[in-house]
Design a protein around this nucleic acid. Structure first.
Lengths: 348, 348
DNA sequence: ATTAGCACTCTATTATGGTGAGTGCTAATA
DNA sequence: TATTAGCACTCACCATAATAGAGTGCTAAT
């Protein structure tokens, strides 16, 4: 399905126009606004052709053309492959305060807000999941005789805490002993190894500590858990600004979808397999039921490993050029920040 | 401004009807649906009187009556003082899964969701703030030479962590020493005392530890911090179900307001001074600009102290009876759970 | 004091016609 | 052969008008 150079230009123009005005565009306006050296009649023929091929459509007989999802797809594929232009949003990014959260969760929340502000879409960030992440420290704090607070720390500074109730009393002294034991045992291991090691240990020592080990095991799972607490949505109200969501039912559907963070999580996790920016247009995404939405997503890294996903959700008619740049920038920014944190955790 | 028994009944009926149907009610329908033993003409006179007094109003000449904010106020004041009826929502509450979060934050998020589900409004919970809360433990984890992770734990099991960079290198051994020192020094003290003590200590020891103390001080502030991270909103999309928000602009305004959690925080913190349920109707609340909203809020406790606020935000036309019961129930439930946690932390 | 009756008011709904942007087709043109 | 001018036709959109119906306020009778 390849297009003539001229047709390509016309398609581009139609989509550009539609993206910026939101109104269907007719042959006359197109002819006047862009300089094709062609008459409106010829444009009409071309547009009819593009419609035939599935790139454009008609809201009704006497309206102008609007892009179909397939049209957007063609447009964006062209965009991504040739996106070496100067950063047009550079100025905006400079003006926006950067991320500085201490806590990883804080950082994620800020990043989602950052995305939203710059893209005028809802920003979504899935918190890091590092099976290769390194164990750093475990701490047990005895509260009452049988109640113990477990604090699990990874090298990149993620802290997971958990309140449990043991079957038997245990002293703080014993807890400290056990914590040093684990620190020594698990030092420098990856979370995956940590869990394997814990299982082995549990089979050896069939003691009081078994329960503690079990819970430590759970904590190590939770630290890289994939539940709704690990999804951050910022600036959802940005979407409400766009006229395509000036419809009450659509809004409702959208916010319902946002509340089901778990689904969103699965969606984002599955969507992004390869590295780099990915764009999902309208119906292309089977998991997100809301009509007329697109997603622009990317991976981010901590050190050498891809650990999470971030992106934006907005109307299909969005400013893809800018949005792609913003998502790309944010992914790189977050990767850099996490990389730094990781460095701090690993060096000695 | 006291009402005749008969007028009271009519007002009650009008508001009941309006709350359940959402449509202005006329004298004819009122006459047929409720059994006053009065003709529609008499009701017309009464309604005109109630309007005169400011309890009812007219959308336009030939429409039925709807309650004013003042009308609601009267209605609710009567409601609260006489709310000793059987729990009508009892069944629903039993069917709804209860709160079980481990982490305090998780618990708060669950509570906001719980409120929303039962009240069909947005649920809001402000996380506990306990100046009287007790210090339990501090832990310093050395990451790289100058980077240290501070973990601050209170008796009720709240964990606050913070990543800092010192000016000088420091060994894990020194950190452990300092942590034991602080644990001994601050044991059993309230957060308020902890901060006072830290200031004193800082003046005595003008050493490397000063920076650590400073940051410990900050962590102790943050643990009872009052920033946007401490506000939990659940089920905001519930509000979208009600027809009064079927208006796009209102929706927008509402969600904008929800995103400004900081403002919401101040609003809730200020609103509730006395104990017990409070209801804010429409314009009564000067800080929340969205028109047509009411709030039902209550305090909750940890042990003997009031530590936080929770409630719901919904359309002025909400099922106050049920909602009040739900908010009351949730506040008590949360108080109980926090009380239990606190017990665990304090006993030895 | 209450009620029946009635004229009046105002919204909501439906019907109607005009307007204009845009198309598709045909015939003329380069 | 590709392009263009011209023209009839379509259809959403808007404003206006007409109608129906719910509800009121007032007056006079009970």
């Amino acid at each position: 399905m390849d297009l003539d150079e001229r047709n390509k230009k016309v398609l581009q123009a139609v989509i550009d126009s539609y993206i910026s005005t939101g109104a269907p565009i007719g042959s006359n306006v197109l002819c006047k606004r862009y300089d094709f050296g062609l008459s409106s009649a010829t444009l009409r023929n071309i547009m009819a052709e593009l419609e035939e091929m599935g790139f454009l459509s008609h809201p009704h007989t006497s309206a102008g053309r609007i892009p179909t999802d397939q049209g957007y797809r063609y447009y964006i594929d062209g965009l991504i492959s040739t996106s070496n232009d100067v950063d047009e949003i550079d100025g905006q990014i400079r003006q926006t305060p950067s991320l500085q959260g201490n806590d990883v969760k804080e950082l994620m929340a800020e990043a989602s807000q950052f995305l939203a502000t710059l893209s005028h879409c809802a920003g979504v960030v899935v918190a890091p999941n590092e099976p290769e992440g390194q164990y750093k420290h475990i701490e047990f704090v005895r509260l009452r005789g049988r109640d113990v607070l477990i604090i699990f720390v990874t090298a990149s500074g993620i802290v997971q805490n958990k309140l449990i109730e043991l079957d038997e009393k245990i002293s703080q002294h014993e807890l400290n002993y056990f914590s040093s034991f684990l620190d020594e045992e698990l030092e420098e291991r990856s979370l995956l190894e940590v869990r394997r090691r814990l299982v082995e240990q549990m089979q050896e020592h069939k003691l009081v500590f078994t329960r503690l080990m079990e819970e430590t095991y759970r904590a190590s799972q939770e630290v890289q858990g994939r539940d709704s607490e690990h999804v951050f949505i910022g600036g959802a109200s940005q979407i409400l600004e766009s006229p395509e969501f000036a419809n009450v039912d659509k809004m409702r559907a959208l916010f319902k979808a946002f509340e089901d963070k778990y689904k969103l999580l699965k969606l984002l996790d599955r969507s992004v397999t390869a590295e780099g920016i990915k764009v999902f247009i309208g119906s292309e995404n089977p998991y997100f039921e809301v009509q007329g939405c697109s997603m622009v997503v990317s991976n981010y890294q901590a050190g050498a490993n891809v650990v999470g996903t971030l992106g934006v959700i907005g109307p299909t008619r969005m400013q893809y050029k800018q949005v792609i740049q913003v998502v790309d920038y944010t992914a790189k920014l977050l990767s850099r920040l996490l990389g730094e944190r990781l460095q701090k955790g690993l060096e000695r």
